[in-house]
């Protein structure tokens, strides 16, 4: 999650995820011989375990549904999401759900279902773009720090410490104040704030992987740094990152919601779940269903990423193997 640091980050001594050790040993020979085949085998194994985790699969199903809705929004939405279709109809605004408007209409007579469908696009965009920014920055600096060590490591990790010193809410508010409101700036703020954790996890993974014999062998054979990082270290060190990134997507969706509440997110009239929730919140008393619509959508999608992330962690964690 980007909005709070994961407990794991606080655990002194847990810096190097030990759980990669046996995993690597087990697959080492295989990886050396037939890397592609080995990796496929690993992921086939992970997928097998994931498939038997009901909650993770539920999460995955929600995510697939969310992405499909976002992709095909124009075909699914019954109305234009910003057209105030019912504004001049007597009693047309804040209608309860009906056959004509499945989820009712909002305070400006717009179709809530259509807004919800289009709003999913913003959530998907924020999730993907923000986490992509964190990943690019985090992996780059994490790799630099972990692989080369020395002063590069010190400088990068001290900068990461500075980022850790800011609770994310404070950091995001500060950045958004400088950049101004808007979706692009939400991407940047959330993305930039997320790099430090990824860099730290990745650096830890690299440190634990790089002393392995096959990496040393590759080095002895004269492979370039980037080749070693990409071909030898990455496939193994990436696993905890995948788990973290999955959860971060949920965090980013949530962050968009509270930034919108502060008036800093996606600007109206373009619907996002965050600005819909903020807009419908005042009607909690007279038209309570309104706030539950975007609210539920946010909770479900964030939940989906958490469940999938959990499932992935369990599936990737070999110590749990056999217990499922």
């Amino acid at each position: 999650m980007t909005d709070r640091k994961r407990p794991e980050d606080y655990l002194p001594g847990k810096e190097q995820p030990e759980f990669l050790g046996p995993e690597v040993e087990e697959f080492e020979a295989e990886l050396e011989k037939e890397r592609v085949h080995g990796r496929t085998a690993l992921w086939r194994d992970v997928w097998y375990r994931l498939r038997h985790n009901k909650m993770a699969m539920a999460g995955l199903a929600i995510i697939v549904f969310l992405v499909l809705v976002a992709l095909f929004a124009p075909f699914l939405a019954p109305y234009d999401p910003i057209e105030q279709v019912e504004i001049r109809t007597p009693g047309g605004v804040k209608q309860p759900p009906s056959g004509k408007h499945w989820l009712g209409t909002d305070d400006l007579g717009r179709d809530i279902l259509s807004r919800l469908i289009y709003g999913s696009r913003i959530s998907v965009e924020v999730g993907i773009v923000a986490v992509a920014i964190s990943l690019v920055l985090g992996l780059f600096f994490g790799a630099l720090a972990g692989y080369f060590g020395g002063w590069a490591d010190s400088v990068i990790m001290r900068s990461a410490d500075v980022f850790f010193a800011f609770p994310t809410v404070l950091g995001a508010i500060a950045i958004m104040t400088v950049l101004g409101p808007g979706l692009i700036n939400v991407f940047i703020a959330i993305g930039v704030l997320g790099w430090a954790t990824i860099a730290r996890i990745f650096r830890g993974s690299i440190l634990s992987v790089k002393e392995n014999e096959y990496v040393e062998a590759a080095r002895a054979l004269g492979a370039t740094h980037s080749r070693i990082i990409w071909r030898h270290i990455m496939p193994n060190a990436i696993q905890p990152i995948i788990v973290y990134a999955t959860m971060s997507v949920g965090g980013a969706i949530l962050a968009e919601a509270w930034l919108a509440f502060l008036g800093l997110g996606q600007q109206p009239p373009t619907p996002s779940w965050g600005n819909m929730l903020a807009e419908y919140l005042p009607f909690y008393n007279t038209h309570p269903w309104m706030m539950f619509i975007p609210g539920t959508a946010i909770v479900l999608s964030v939940l989906a990423f958490i469940l999938l992330g959990d499932g992935l962690r369990d599936a990737l964690d070999p110590r749990l193997r056999g217990s499922i």
Partner: peptide
């Protein structure tokens, strides 16, 4: 300025102007 429903009013006026062919963005500030 953000808060107290100014954004709702702005969205309504925005759609009024759109009806006669004029479009503009709306933006909230502190």
């Amino acid at each position: 300025n953000t808060g107290v429903g100014h954004d709702t009013i702005a969205q309504f006026i925005q759609s009024n102007l759109k009806d006669v062919g004029v479009s503009f963005k709306i933006e909230g500030y502190e």
